[in-house]
Amino acid sequence: MEVILKEDVNKLGHRGDVVKVADGYGRNYLLPGKLAIEATLANRAVIEQMKGSAIRKSAKEKAAAETLATSLAHVELTFERKTGENDHLFGSVTSGDIAHQLELQGYTIDRRKISLEDPLKSLGEYHVPIKLHREVTSHIKVTVKAEESETEAAPVA
């Protein structure tokens, strides 16, 4: 099945590209998610007209992403998690957790733009990339610390 991408899709293509995908992927993910439209002759003509406006829109998005990237460069997030032996976390810190913390600080960023290959499962300091635009990537500092247990926090007299 051939589709025309309406949005940038990781490892598939950029907005306006005509790509060939498996039928199920197109019907069950791209089309319902409004990420693509079917590549019919009429849609191809519409897309050609939309490419001009898409270039202008992309330039505005890039400028906004660069502004956001400069403000995100100074952001530091700290997560406190319960740990077991050898400082191994119970649970993990995911891209959803990072997106939620950023939202609390006033930055609205989709969790899919946070490029964590695997959730953070150990204590330490990490530099997490955030892909704000196809040409703009910012990094934030994420620190995962051990949560103080109640016995350590309140010594018995």
Rank of each mutant, 00 (worst) to 15 (best):
T40S: 15
A22T: 15
S53K: 15
A45Q: 14
S92Y: 05
K34N: 10
H74V: 14
S92E: 04
E66T: 12
A99D: 04
T108E: 08
L68V: 13
G106Q: 09
A54I: 12
K34F: 10
A59M: 07
V156F: 09
L132Q: 05
H88T: 01
K82H: 05
L5K: 01
T143S: 10
Q101R: 13
G16V: 03
V19Y: 01
K34T: 01
R112C: 05
N86T: 06
L31Q: 10
K57C: 02
E147H: 09
A146H: 03
S138M: 10
I130P: 01
K62Y: 01
A36Y: 02
K131S: 11
N86H: 11
Q101K: 14
K20E: 13
E125N: 04
G96L: 08
T70Y: 09
S122H: 10
E152K: 14
E117P: 13
P32L: 07
L72I: 04
L116F: 09
A59L: 09
A54L: 13
I55Q: 15
P129K: 03
K141Q: 07
T70G: 13
K113R: 12
K131L: 14
A73S: 15
V3N: 09
K82N: 13
E103M: 05
I114Q: 01
K141V: 05
G33L: 08
L77M: 07
T108R: 11
K131E: 15
V9P: 01
S95C: 06
L72Y: 01
S58I: 03
V136C: 06
L72P: 00
G13I: 01
N43Q: 12
D8L: 00
G26C: 11
Y107T: 06
H14F: 11
G91Y: 02
I55S: 12
E147V: 05
V9L: 00
A69F: 12
I130G: 00
A153D: 13
Q105I: 01
Y126Q: 06
D97S: 01
E150N: 12
S122C: 03
G52H: 12
L77P: 01
D23V: 12
M50K: 09
K60D: 13
R134A: 02
R56P: 00
T143Q: 07
A69H: 10
I47L: 11
E80M: 12
V3Y: 10
K11F: 11
P119G: 03
E147W: 08
K82P: 05
G24W: 00
V46Q: 14
L5I: 04
A39K: 02
P119S: 05
Y29K: 07
N10C: 07
